[in-house]
Simulated assay, not measured.
Amino acid sequence: MATVEIRPLTTAEAQSAAGLLGRGMRDNPTHIKTFGTDPVRRERTLRRIFTPFLERQLSDGRVLGAFADQRLVGVAALAAPGGCQPTLTDKRRALPALLANGPTRALRMLAWTRVWARRDAGMPPHWHLGPLAVAPAWQGQGIGSWLLGRLCDHLDRQRGLGYLETDLPENVRLYRRFGFESLASEPVIGVTHWFMQREAGG
């Protein structure tokens, strides 16, 4: 396996990071349910949605990249307290990508994100973990765990509460290894989502 370096991403790397997130999260159950069965369309849509969000997170949060031989193979983001929900500007920039998939799919994403926003609003001040993804060819090699470990180190230094959502059971098991506990699960547009938190100090 190539040597993997983990470092903060720069604003200039936002589009590359968004592209990796699109590839790495393309086959998540919620994305299939929302954006349809065409994997190329799902990947393109996710890339366009993630780009503005990442650009903002890079300026006021913490976004790490994992590099193998200088090639980006993983991305993990941690939004600072108060900065985890998309801004109006984020939503405006993402709107063309949503509408390109048709009104039904746009409404599905609206229903999904409303659930997330409602649960997020009920939380005390927290650091919001996500998105996190590893390039498909590099999955299963520990890169996601390395990225997650670095973000949890940051939480510990800040003595901060961590919070996340996931629709993958295997991710629930991974996050539990790093001190996250399930607060609740809920069907969201027909897909089970888990909502998890990590107490300050892990």
Rank of each mutant, 00 (worst) to 15 (best):
residue 157 R to G: 02
residue 146 W to V: 08
residue 161 L to Q: 05
residue 139 Q to N: 01
residue 33 K to M: 11
residue 18 A to V: 01
residue 90 D to Y: 06
residue 3 T to W: 13
residue 162 G to F: 07
residue 12 A to S: 12
residue 104 T to Q: 13
residue 47 R to L: 05
residue 175 Y to C: 02
residue 67 F to V: 02
residue 86 P to D: 03
residue 108 R to C: 07
residue 96 P to C: 04
residue 44 R to I: 03
residue 177 R to V: 00
residue 31 H to D: 01
residue 32 I to F: 07
residue 192 T to M: 15
residue 186 E to W: 11
residue 186 E to L: 15
residue 62 R to G: 02
residue 140 G to R: 10
residue 171 N to S: 11
residue 23 R to M: 02
residue 90 D to K: 02
residue 104 T to R: 15
residue 96 P to A: 04
residue 174 L to H: 08
residue 140 G to W: 14
residue 46 L to G: 00
residue 59 S to V: 12
residue 141 Q to S: 11
residue 21 L to D: 00
residue 133 A to P: 07
residue 24 G to Q: 00
residue 57 Q to S: 09
residue 194 W to N: 02
residue 67 F to I: 03
residue 181 E to W: 13
residue 151 L to N: 02
residue 163 Y to R: 01
residue 17 A to C: 06
residue 19 G to E: 14
residue 76 A to Y: 14
residue 55 E to P: 02
residue 145 S to G: 14
residue 7 R to N: 00
residue 51 T to D: 14
residue 43 E to C: 11
residue 120 D to H: 14
residue 115 V to Q: 07
residue 173 R to P: 05
residue 102 G to P: 11
residue 145 S to T: 12
residue 139 Q to G: 02
residue 202 G to S: 00
residue 151 L to G: 01
residue 37 T to K: 12
residue 26 R to W: 01
residue 1 M to D: 01
residue 41 R to N: 03
